[in-house]
Design a protein around this nucleic acid. Sequence first.
RNA 1: AGCUUAGUCGUCUAAAGGCAAGGAUGCUGGAUUUUGGCUCCGGCGGUAUAGGUUCGAGUCCUAUCUAAGCUGCCA
Length: 567
Amino acid sequence: MDKKHIEKEETKTPMNFIEQIVNEDLNTGKHQSIITRFPPEPNGFLHIGHTKAICINFGITERFGGKTNLRFDDTNPEKESTEYVNAIIRDMKWLGFDWGGQELYASDYFGTLYKYAIQLIKDGLAYVDDSSSEEMAEQKGNLTQAGSNSPYRERSVEENLDLFKRMKTGEFENGSKVLRAKIDMSHPNLLMRDPVIYRVKKAHHHRTGDEWNIYPMYDFAHGQSDSIENITHSLCSLEFENHRPLYNWFIEKLGIYPSRQIEFSRMNVTYMITSKRRLLKLVAEGVVSGWDDPRMPTVSGLRRKGYSPKSIRTFCDKAGVSKREQTVDIGLLEECLRQDLNKTTNRIMAVLKPLKVIITNYPEGQVEQMDIVNNPEEENPTYRKIPFSKELFIEQSDFMEEAPNRKYRRLAPGKIVRLKSGYIIECEDYIKDEATGEIKEVHCKYFENSRSGSDTSGLKPKGTLGWVSAAHAVKAEARLYDRLFNDPTPTQHKDRDFMEFINPNSLEILPEILVEPSVVDLKAGDQVQFMRIGYFCVDEDSTPEKLVFNRAVTLKDTWAKVQRNSK
RNA sequence: AGCUUAGUCGUCUAAAGGCAAGGAUGCUGGAUUUUGGCUCCGGCGGUAUAGGUUCGAGUCCUAUCUAAGCUGCCA
């Protein structure tokens, strides 16, 4: 291939192998514009694995122009429902994708698909088979042995036509007859051994109601739907590689628009599982509170936990596209969230595990309003006020009776620290419950001339702490989420069940944290950074009396790492 | 065992036969810091194995090894 053909696209961003194919098809004039599709079956909720397929399909047309259809692959009425359709639409809109407003359905094409089947029968390429599923399995052969022909394989076109029409009108019971493509029972690819393309299924369909007694199989619906929609590139996961010869066989025999199927590897993420069956078990057994539990890998779970659409899309982009098995480090997902939220969230003063600090030389009853920056990453930073007073709370972990080493920058007797956007204080004394060892109270003096923004003290404290004013702080609940599993690949162990790897500490509830008073204006879904702690999202369980904050991800914690490594 | 596909830093990914195999994340050292965050600078770390083609191979060929998918009237 001549190298200059690549250059149509301006950007230097490297292309993945699918984008390279698309780019070439555009440059060679094979296609004038691109149409892709995302084809979920409405029988479950979207999860992190689906977002990759979504991002690839929509990403292609965002980059090269064209459009991406949202098409529901609803050919199995027993498993599908409008509830899932609506949930999928909601999640995809939240992720920020646009499919032109109108959802498409494979069920819209049932009439056309039926005609295609008739066409195959007339061309002698399909036949009605009365064999039971057991008999068909028998005929199928196995991985190393060729199959054998069904005794019904040589029925006449007329008989097949008659039988198939009667299947449609409901004359035959479920399982009694199927329509099979007549291909080759000794084909090395098992899917080519006369696959079933229509089955009798007297079931109520969420869109077509009771109109149909027969429904097409995936292989006789998906590719044809692609053709009907003039999909140029039909992108799917590796498991459909074996289906491609069949996909192309139908295109050829039916003489329909030749969409091209290209497969890529599914995305796995460490410490997450995406099997529908297993996720259902977590819900059913109450391991999590529901499909939108913040520990779930579902889009709704990620959303509730505090993930932004942008962070999820960035994650999929960074994970990349290839045909290799892919297990992406969950750390990358978390880092994408931090990078997004770092730019967008206000810094809020919060104390998770409070320790009382009394400023001994601060006037009783005095309250000062301190200026604090909302988000230092903003181009033009804005400020708000927070109250400072004689009695404060700091984080328990910010005080030690004795500094452990020279690197320690927090509070300890005789040490000074800066209270963020407040004053510099020096620890003079503390009260300890000798029985329990618990520190009850810390006594400090403040330097009156060290007020943030007008500091003339000349003091250079090493550390800066978060704090809240005792009299003004708002009580709230914090839900600290951690990974649901304590093994990176809980389903990859040959002789151990994934349930054995559930992390018993995946949720720690702190019923009474203290937060600066400005948070009373927050609403469910709002995201903030608790300074020096992490990114939090207001949960829908919040009430006017008590906000509930979900921890989406912690801040990076170099100090924790230093401590871990020194052990 | 047959068919299909894939093996590049720990992980993800780039290199279309041609520069010292690049980037991200991770780990690590440092600078800066009123967040032990952010930012900035440095370091660590890779072509599964064995042959072959070629002036030149991660890339092409052969064999081997390893991994995944395929024997639903699921998608």
